[in-house]
Deep mutational scan, measured.
Amino acid sequence: MQIFVKTLTGKTITLEVEPSDTIENVKAKIQDKEGIPPDQQRLIFAGKQLEDGRTLSDYNIQKESTSHLVLR
């Protein structure tokens, strides 16, 4: 499924993911596309910070959901 990640600069990154993917996996995909190390990434969805060990389905992130990327 596709999800979108919006950066603070207003850029939207499109990612191909599975509901069973962990947040860690998603951060690795963002690193592949954008070159941002996962330890600098914070992903926010529905006002919550997403934890590495959880999956997209844990957070009820469905296709075409948009989460926000904040850099630390």
Rank of each mutant, 00 (worst) to 15 (best):
G47H: 05
T14S: 10
S57A: 14
E51R: 08
K29P: 00
T7G: 06
T22Q: 04
I30H: 00
P19L: 10
L71C: 06
Y59I: 04
L71E: 07
P37K: 07
E64D: 14
I36G: 02
D52E: 09
L71F: 06
D39Q: 11
V17W: 02
G53E: 10
R42W: 10
R42E: 12
Q2K: 13
L50K: 00
P19G: 07
D21I: 05
Q62V: 12
I23F: 02
S57C: 05
T12F: 10
S67Q: 11
V5R: 00
R42T: 15
T22K: 07
D58W: 10
L43T: 01
K27A: 01
V26A: 02
G47M: 03
D52V: 05
S20N: 13
E34H: 07
N60Q: 08
T66Y: 08
R72I: 15
T55G: 02
K63R: 13
I23G: 01
L15G: 00
T55D: 03
T9L: 11
H68S: 08
D39E: 13
K29Q: 08
S57L: 11
L50G: 02
D39R: 10
D39A: 12
L15H: 00
P19C: 07
P37W: 05
L71A: 07
P37E: 06
Q62C: 11
V17F: 03
I61R: 01
S57N: 10
E34C: 15
F4K: 10
I61S: 01
Q49I: 15
K29D: 02
K6T: 12
E64G: 15
K63E: 12
K6W: 07
Q40N: 09
L69H: 02
I61T: 02
G35C: 06
A28L: 15
I44M: 11
H68Y: 14
I3D: 01
S57K: 11
Q2S: 10
I3K: 00
D21N: 06
T66M: 11
G35Q: 05
L50N: 01
Q49H: 13
T9A: 12
T66K: 11
I23P: 01
D39G: 11
Q41P: 01
P38V: 15
K48M: 14
T14K: 09
F4G: 04
D32E: 14
Q41K: 01
G53T: 10
A46H: 14
K48I: 14
A46T: 05
A28F: 12
K11I: 08
N25P: 00
T9E: 11
I36N: 02
D32N: 10
E24L: 14
D39C: 13
N60E: 07
G53L: 08
V70N: 05
I61W: 04
R54M: 11
E51N: 07
P37T: 06
K11P: 04
L50F: 02
T7Q: 06
I13W: 04
L43Q: 00
L43N: 00
L8P: 15
L71D: 06
E34Y: 07
I13E: 01
S57E: 12
K11Y: 12
Q31E: 09
D58E: 09
F4L: 10
I23H: 00
G53S: 11
I44K: 04
E18A: 13
S65C: 08
I13R: 01
K48C: 10
P38Y: 11
R54Y: 13
A46W: 08
R42N: 13
Q2H: 12
S67A: 15
V26G: 00
N25Q: 14
K27L: 05
E51P: 03
S20E: 10
Q2E: 09
R72G: 11
Q41F: 14
I3H: 03
E16V: 12
D52T: 05
K33G: 04
Q41M: 13
I44A: 05
I30Y: 02
D58F: 13
Q49M: 13
N25D: 12
G35F: 04
M1T: 05
M1N: 03
A28Q: 13
T66V: 12
V5H: 01
Y59T: 02
G47D: 06
I13V: 05
A46V: 06
E18L: 15
V70L: 13
R72D: 13
G10A: 03
D32W: 09
I30F: 02
E16H: 11
R42P: 01
L56F: 02
D52W: 03
L43V: 03
G10E: 04
L69C: 02
L8E: 14
V5E: 01
V26D: 00
A28H: 11
